[in-house]
Amino acid sequence: MSFLTEFPSMDPGNLRDLKKAIDGTFRDFTRANGEFIESLFDPLKWFLLWFERLLLATPWPLIIIIVCALAWLASRSWKLVAGTAIAFLVIGYLDMWEDTMVTMAMVSVATLLCIGFGIPIGVAMARSDRAQAIITPILDIMQTIPSFVYLIPVVMLLGIGKAPALIAVMIYAIPPIVRLTNLGIRLVQEDVLEAANSFGASYRQRLLGVQIPLALPNIFAGVNQTIMMALAMVVIAALIGGSGLGTPVLRAVNNQYLALGLFNGMAIVALAIIFDRVSQAYGKRLQKHREGGHGV
C-alpha cells in the first residue's frame, strides 16, 4: 500500500537525466550565445556605470542640493526636504556615502529602464486583449518566482557583475509599472475617449493627449512600486555583483557584524522612505484637478 503513502514519483535515474538534459541544453546555449547576449546588455551596463561614476564624481554638497531640489519640485513639502537632507547627512557621516551613491545609481537606472520598457508594454496590453492575456501570466510568474531562481540563468548567461545585477533588479521591479499602466489606461472613462474620437482624434492623439495623461496617477503609483521593489532587490542583487549598500549587509550577515548590518539596512530604509514619499506626493499632485467637482 506504499502507493498511497508515498507519491509515485519519477524514477530517480530518469529524473537525474531530465535535470541533466535541461542543464546541459542551457549550458550549451550559454556557451554558444553567452557572449552575444552579454553584448546585447552592454549598453545598459555602460549607462549604469556612467551614471554611477557621475554620482560618485559629483561633490556631495551638490548631490544633497540636487536631491533636495527634486524632492521640493515633486512634493512642495519643506518637511520632506528637511528629512531628505538630514538622512543624507547622517548617511555621509556614518561613511556610507559611496555605497549609497552606487545603490542610488542602480535603483535610478533600473527604474528609468523599467519606465522606458514598462510603459510601452502596458500601452500594448491596454490596446489589445490578446496582448493582455499573454503578458499577464508572464508578469505573475515574474512576481511570484523566488528571485534566487531566476538569478541562476541570469548568472549562467551573464556571469557576475553589474549587468546581471541590473537585469535581476529589473525583472523583479518591472511588473507593477506594466500592470498599472495597463490598468490606468483601461480605466479612462469611455465617454471622454468617445468625445476625443468624435472630434477626429487619431490613435496617437488619443493615447498621448487623453489616455496617458488621465492614467498618470495610476502610472505613477506603478513607478512608486517599481522604485520600492528595486530597492528591496538591492541586497539580493549584491549577491551577484550589484555592490552598493547590499554588499556590507551581506558581509554583516556572514560575520555577524550587527552595527554594520543595521547602519546599511537603515540607509536602505531611508532611501526607500524618501523615494516613496516624494513619488507619492508627486502622484497626488497629478490628481489635483481630477477629483471632487460638482458632477451634475
Partner: peptide
C-alpha cells in the same frame, strides 16, 4: 469628416478633466 463637418455634444459632457 469628424474634425470639420460634424461635432458632438454629450449627455454627460465628456470634458477632459486634465
Amino acid at each position: 469628416f469628424r474634425q470639420k463637418k460634424a461635432s458632438m455634444v454629450f449627455q454627460k459632457f465628456a470634458l477632459m478633466p486634465h
